[in-house]
């Protein structure tokens, strides 16, 4: 059977584009609600803002089933190792959105208890400003991430691509590569 028999319902494209198209349209976030932002993240998933429009309403409880971590809220020194452990459990390809100023830079809590930016622990793809960011802001950062997925590399590990805050990523990558 040749191609001449298939004259409808037929698309051609590069396999790379198709893979990225598929990935972009079904990003499954892990529930990583920490503080105030988590409530706004839940609002985003609920009826009024309806994250299902972007194929993202399935918040997975298990990091093994998720490919996006939305760090929603301030990360304390006590939580930091837990966050890293959850991130390490996620399968590649994986992305991180740092939601809110506390996760992005420590925000107004520049003190002994809070990690000043989650990018010191995990590489971040999109920073979402606001305290807390409204659902619209979160959706905008999700769409930004979709665009990154659509235009980015599909096989290269993002450590090499320099995603996130470069300085931290390099340090952390070296640390991870060290044998235990």
């Amino acid at each position: 059977m040749g191609l001449e028999d298939l004259n409808h319902n037929f698309l051609t494209g590069r396999i790379e584009d198709l893979v990225k198209w598929a990935r972009r349209n079904s990003v499954w976030p892990a529930t990583f609600g920490l503080a105030c932002c988590a409530i706004e993240m839940m609002s985003t998933g609920a009826a009024h803002f309806d994250l299902a429009r972007f194929g993202m309403e399935v918040f997975r409880a298990s990091p093994r089933q998720a490919d996006l971590m939305i760090v929603a809220g301030r990360v304390s020194q006590k939580m930091a190792p837990v966050l890293r452990q959850v991130y390490d459990q996620m399968m590649e390809p994986k992305w991180v959105i740092s939601m809110g100023v506390c996760a992005s830079s420590g925000g107004m809590f520049n003190n002994y208890a809070i990690v000043q930016g989650v990018d010191q622990i995990v590489p971040v793809d999109v920073y979402s400003p606001g305290c807390p960011p409204g659902p619209e802001t979160l959706m905008h950062s999700i769409l930004t991430l979709h665009e990154l997925i659509r235009t980015g590399e599909i096989t290269k590990r993002r450590g090499a691509a320099g995603a996130g805050a470069g300085v931290h990523v390099t340090e952390r990558r070296v640390a991870v590569a060290t044998p235990h």
Partner: peptide, 11 residues
């Protein structure tokens, strides 16, 4: 608990 300790009383 303490995983969300923010040091708010110090702040």
């Amino acid at each position: 608990m303490g995983y969300l300790h923010t040091g708010m009383e110090k702040t």
